[in-house]
């Protein structure tokens, strides 16, 4: 795999300078060559660039520790709470530099992250959880009530469980609650981190279906970090693959799905068809002998 250019159009070498600027003009969110360091020593992102078009669904793919979550947190600026820092590059929302803003400011501007592992407020009821999402909107009662109904429209399950403490609801319900809470902020772009984690395949499918509907009907842009490459590439329009803090490949979702390397490394398929379980086992056993 070779380092791919961030630009999806095959721009000539000389125009390389101008291309990102032109791109960020039509992109809702653009991340330009950022580097993130934790605790002043641990280099996690080594120059990540990506751009998210308005109204799109973009997937960030990669293995554990590739830097997906860090990229999202750099955008929503939850990094600072973990003593991480963007040391190079820039992050722009509709052409405005946003990397020094507090999460509060970013939420007001329409950038919200749904964190990995849901992070619902366990001791608050489902409805109270949703209402915390409206915190930055102040006293706009009518609007908040209307959005609450909108969220219940997408997630009827939440309406049934509105009075239960979120900590006692199921994993799927908590994921819905977290997404619903994000919608209550009236976002432009939702950074969705690992929504499939720990959920049954059917439920994952259902949640992605709803996310897609939200994207189409509410015009909310989605930037998605997923390990479940298969599902993510089916719902996303464009994908970036991260490895060791770098973007190693990017392209429209269909192209990535067809790519041999992606098939082999992320979808568990190879050119010779699916490997049989016996071969896999054999391979592993041999490897253990050698090491």
């Amino acid at each position: 795999m070779s380092q791919a250019t961030a630009s999806q159009t095959a721009a000539p070498e000389l125009a390389g300078e101008a291309a990102p600027a032109a791109e960020s003009a039509r992109a809702l969110l653009s991340v330009n060559n950022i580097e993130v360091i934790y605790d002043h020593v641990i280099l996690v992102l080594k120059g990540v660039s990506l751009s998210v078009p308005k109204g799109g669904i973009v997937a960030l793919l990669g293995a554990n520790g590739a830097g997906k979550t860090t990229t999202l947190k750099a955008i929503s600026n939850l990094l600072r709470a973990e003593r991480g820092e963007v040391t190079k590059g820039s992050i722009e929302l509709e052409g405005e530099r946003v990397q020094d803003m507090t999460p509060n400011d970013l939420v007001k501007r329409g950038v919200i992250q749904v964190m990995e592992g849901r992070h619902c407020f366990e001791h608050l009821t489902v409805e109270e959880n949703l209402l915390t999402g409206a915190y930055t909107r102040g006293g706009d009662r009518a609007g908040i009530q209307q959005d609450l109904e909108m969220v219940y429209g997408y997630f009827p399950r939440l309406k049934e469980r509105r009075g239960s403490q979120a900590g006692y609801t199921s994993g799927g319900e908590q994921q819905m609650c977290a997404i619903g809470r994000a919608l209550m902020t009236r976002p432009k772009v939702v950074l969705l981190d690992e929504p499939s984690m720990g959920l049954a395949p059917q439920l994952v499918e259902q949640i992605f279906e709803i996310v897609k509907r939200i994207n189409e009907q509410e015009g909310v842009t989605i930037l998605l970090a997923e390990q479940n490459t298969n599902v993510a590439l089916r719902y996303a329009k464009y994908g970036y693959i991260l490895e060791n803090g770098r973007v190693v490949m990017d392209g429209p979702a269909e192209r990535l799905r067809e790519n041999e390397d992606v098939k082999e490394f992320y979808l568990g398929l190879s050119a010779t068809g699916r490997k049989s379980y016996r071969d896999v086992k054999h391979y592993k056993r041999r490897k253990r002998w050698l090491s």
Binding site: S76, L78, A81, P103, N104, V107, K108, I112, Q113, M115
Partner: peptide, 8 residues
């Protein structure tokens, strides 16, 4: 963290 993420 979650509170921070929803803009509180």
């Amino acid at each position: 963290q979650a509170a921070l993420s929803v803009g509180i």
